[in-house]
Design a protein around this nucleic acid. Structure first.
Lengths: 218, 218, 218, 218
DNA sequence: GATGAATGAGGATTCATTCAT
DNA sequence: AATGAATGAATCCTCATTCAT
């Protein structure tokens, strides 16, 4: 069945299987993707998939882990460690959008599929998300310190910095999700998406620093 | 099997079935939800579900339509038609968050499940989303006019108002999505979520009006 | 549902149901025809069909009986009792072909469906067939006596007259079956079909009378 | 579950499945035969039947094709190619009756079931039948030429030779059909059935050659 | 390292049939 | 005389998973 040569070393075969699985899970969803389909897409027989990855659940988990690690690595590799905080945030966002654009199936599996399938998997993604939120929170806080060293009520700001980070990550996910569903010339570039969000983050930060808010009773 | 009274008129039974279906689809996802489970949750036998709703696909579609209509109606009912635009936006957001908080299963079905299952269903949700984005775009544009009547470069603003509306809706969806996954005292109230987003919208609007932007080369 | 007036007397309703059932069974076969379909075709609700005809089996049996009786009656009505035997056979065949042509659904139910469904029903048709074969056997025997009064070995002829009758009936059925499957100008008229079979019967009879036979060792 | 050995190669298992399917379809009809029943009769599990034959429709089609091919092959193998035409017809008929007698289930599936189920299947059988009719037409025409080389009105004869062939095939089918329904000592041998039909064919041929016919107005 | 053969379990869908009105 | 409401019992089909080689 496999048109390609046989006797491929295990590590390589496993990556081929994960590639096939990610693509299939992204296109069909966890339940609708069949092990048959994945095995065929990987160019191997079904028992081999089981030999290496044990079960559909473990296969899906392996996909999630691989894609989550790759995404985190891409973001981490994108930030310049010694740059000013706003520059770090900017390059991190850029890394995020460029990676998700380059690996749309991975992003779909993480964002759309894993979170809708249910418990063992959603937790996995939640952990990754928490790490990213923490990372962004740190950057925003640093940026705030850089911008205004004599901030008065730091304790209040902490809580709101976290809210801002959450909102920023949520917005980034939403943008990436809609990007993944868009093809052709209308699709925003990573730079555009990142710039949009930097503007959000910065005006949000301004609001925080100046205590300038919209209120219903205005 | 059904513990409740029998011989219920069709219209009532259909709503019971849709209630059960929305809850089940939200918890399990489209594929994993079985018609057996739904019928049992509705307190009727499976053939009756088929008699009234025809197929799993049509049942799911009926759920999507009902929840989408309910959401649109809730938002529309929340806005005060003659209030100033910012007030309208605020009350619309409030209506949105209160409805999604009150009907988390409906929101999950619309936002998480329908969009990940594939084509006949995703399109249905896309239409609803487009209507909401258009509505929000109108409100933001009106608010911008109210705030600054002599705005110079309106044509540029139009394009960016639309981007802002998209981002606002995306952020609202993301927030509602994470709210739906959160229970207990940590869960933000509808008012909090709406206020957060109004601040986003307002600072975004400020950016638009003042031409004040963050750029990487800064 | 029923577009026609209500409160129809039972005897009439029953015939409407049988009409609908015969048409449906002919088109779909016994198993594939659903009681729903039949009730709808009859313009009544399903419980009414059950009220009058009790079960699908009994309904099918009633169809078979009605169509078998109608066919036998048509053949009997067609023969002129006091005519010479060959003339009687001819008019009987004509009656047979004209009736089956006028009631193709009835013929299909009897010939194609009832015999392939299995036991309670096939027996019903077998009885009808036996009656017809007996009737034809009598006519052929009479015709033979008319044609040649001093026939020598009557006992041998009896066995062969029966074989001829069987073959004639089988051929008639086969012809009617293929006629029922044919529509348009290519379809043979009842007269043509009857003439074809009379020629078969007559040459078969000749063979019997003259002892003139084809044998493999010739 | 299967009492026979396991790990049978695919080609063999497929034939076992077809054997079981032909027997089951013949006894119960297409609709009433369940895949469970067929799988059990084949001594395998249902999924294996689906793995090899894909669906009930395809399984039935495969049965029809196999039985049709076997029947055509049996007839072709029976005729002696260089014998006189009447001898060829005789041996073909003999082959037909012996094959249908040896494979009554196959004949039932072809003749009774496939034709009553509906369109994709009836067409398959119609093609086979057309091939057989063409073959017989050729033999009868040849026999006619052998018997009377100076036949005057060949064009008329052509049309009637075809009619005769049709009638002969119809009669053979009818005979084989009733044979298949008969068991025990009363069942005619293949030789008897073939001889009966040769006599039909020969007297029909005589009628054609001599212009000797029965007419109602006689 | 790799696969052809095989299955238990479950899911969508349909159908004959009944009951309360 | 007639029907809307309701269901138990199949039936077709798919899938994750294993075993022997």
């Amino acid at each position: 069945m496999g048109v390609q040569g046989k006797r491929v070393p295990r590590a390589v075969r496993e990556q081929q299987m994960l590639d096939a699985a990610v693509a299939t899970f992204a296109r069909r969803g966890y339940r609708a993707a069949s092990m048959d389909e994945i095995a065929e897409a990987a160019g191997v027989s079904k028992p081999l998939v089981y030999l290496y990855l044990n079960s559909k659940d473990e296969l899906f988990t392996a996909c999630i882990r691989r894609e989550a690690d790759a995404l985190k690595a891409a973001v981490r590799a994108a930030v310049e460690p010694d740059a000013p905080a706003d520059r770090q945030l900017w390059s991190g966002l850029l890394g995020f959008f460029e990676h998700t654009a380059a690996h749309p199936d991975g992003w779909t599996v993480l964002y759309s599929q894993a979170r809708t399938v249910g418990e063992p998997f959603a937790a996995e993604v939640a952990v990754m998300r928490a790490e990213i939120v923490a990372f962004v929170t740190g950057l925003i806080a640093a940026a705030a310190r850089d911008a205004d060293c004599e901030a008065a009520d730091q304790s209040l700001a902490d809580r709101e910095v976290a809210a801002l980070a959450h909102a920023l990550v949520g917005a980034a996910e939403s943008l990436a999700g809609w990007n993944a569903g868009t093809t052709g010339p209308g699709r925003p570039s990573g730079k555009e998406s990142a710039a949009t969000l930097m503007n959000f983050a910065w005006s949000g930060l301004d609001n925080l620093m100046t205590g300038h808010r919209w209120t219903p009773s205005r």
